[in-house]
Every structure is written in structure tokens, then in C-alpha cells.
């Protein structure tokens, strides 16, 4: 059994990120936010022996369907987000968001298994927000309260705790610096 991760992202301007950044800086008054990016993260478990075979299957899914991403407008990384400089990770936080209610994972998994005949065993879908700050003024707790966990209209944006949960990902677990 081989586990892979797929990070997909829009290749053109992501309007969702622009709106989120605008709201965080202008309305939530977190002026130290430098940039924000959004990835769909798929954690995939394939019933194969080697990583090479697993990656071949993943490329087959991407190349012959839109189940995981639309290659006309989205690009992707396998396993790790590729960064040009390790320094980019300074003051950068990765926030993984999952829904507490079921999403379309099982439908996607069924389609991949039945229509593409890929030996896929499990599939989990999350959103990963990449938050980069100009400095290290904010702790994880402050970021949680000011930007992530929405408790009222003045605090939080990225997660509604009534039906979503989040966790910080260790940056060294998802990046691959050149």
C-alpha cells in the first residue's frame, strides 16, 4: 500500500485568495499578512507495491480525467509543495481544513476505481491555506483567533467551527525546497 499526496492549485489568479487577503488585511486588521494561497490536498492510498507504480497511476488519473483537478486551469505537486527557496517558509503557516460533514470523497473514489480501473483504496480531501506574513509578530494562537476560527464578524474567516475543523501542518512535512 503506497500513500501519496496531491496538491492542486489554480494556475491563474485565485480570486478566493484575493478576497480572503483583502478581508483579512482591511476588515480583520491583520496588516502583517503578506500573501495567501490555497491548495486542494488529496491524500491517496493506492493498493500497489512501489511508489513509481503509484505515481504512474496518479498521473493516469490526472491525465485522463477531471476527478482530482482540471488541468486546463489547475496545476499540481505530488507529495510536496515545491518552493524555490527554503527562506520562503519563514513566517509561513500551512492550515489544513476539513469538513466535519461528509464531502464528495467517496463519489470521487468510486469514479476513479470504476471508470479508470485504478487500484485506489482511500482518498481524503482537504483544503490547505498557505499564509505568509511579513514578520513573526503573530503566534499560532493569535492567527487562530484573528484569521482562522470564525467566532463573529470581526474575528476569523477561514474556518466555521460549527462544521469545519483545522490543524496547522508542519511546514517541513509538506515542502520540498530546491
Amino acid at each position: 500500500m503506497i500513500k501519496l499526496r496531491l496538491f492542486s492549485f489554480l494556475t491563474y489568479v485565485d480570486l478566493e485568495c484575493i478576497s480572503a487577503k483583502e478581508a483579512i488585511i482591511q476588515q480583520l486588521k491583520v496588516e502583517s499578512l503578506d500573501s495567501i494561497k490555497k491548495y486542494n490536498m488529496f491524500e491517496i492510498q493506492l493498493d500497489v507495491e512501489t511508489r513509481k507504480v503509484a505515481e504512474d497511476y496518479l498521473n493516469k488519473i490526472i491525465g485522463s480525467s477531471y476527478y482530482l483537478l482540471n488541468s486546463n486551469k489547475e496545476s499540481y505537486y505530488i507529495n510536496n509543495i515545491e518552493l524555490k527557496h527554503k527562506e520562503y517558509l519563514d513566517n509561513t503557516f500551512f492550515v489544513k481544513v476539513n469538513k466535519l460533514i461528509a464531502n464528495d470523497e467517496q463519489k470521487i473514489l468510486g469514479n476513479i476505481k470504476n471508470k479508470l480501473h485504478v487500484p485506489i483504496a482511500r482518498l481524503n480531501k482537504s483544503i490547505v491555506w498557505e499564509l505568509k506574513f511579513k514578520n513573526n509578530d503573530l503566534s499560532k494562537e493569535e492567527i487562530t483567533n484573528k484569521i482562522i476560527n470564525t467566532t463573529n464578524r470581526n474575528e476569523g474567516l477561514l474556518v466555521n467551527p460549527l462544521f469545519e475543523r483545522f490543524s496547522f501542518l508542519e511546514s517541513n512535512s509538506i515542502y520540498n525546497a530546491a
Binding site: A102, T150, N152
Partner: peptide, 28 residues
């Protein structure tokens, strides 16, 4: 709902309800 104006049982405009994606038999 996202503004906390409804139901606002605590009177502080805190979020007390949410509109999540439609579900049927625990499936989207």
C-alpha cells in the same frame, strides 16, 4: 448566520448557527 445576527441567543452577535452544504443520508 455568518454575522452572528441570528439566532443571537447570547446577545453578542457570536456565531451560533451555520449553513453547511446540503446533505442526504450523510452524503453530499
Amino acid at each position: 448566520a455568518e454575522a452572528g445576527l441570528v439566532p443571537n441567543l447570547g446577545g453578542e452577535n457570536k456565531i451560533e448557527m451555520a449553513l453547511a452544504p446540503n446533505m442526504s443520508n450523510d452524503k453530499p
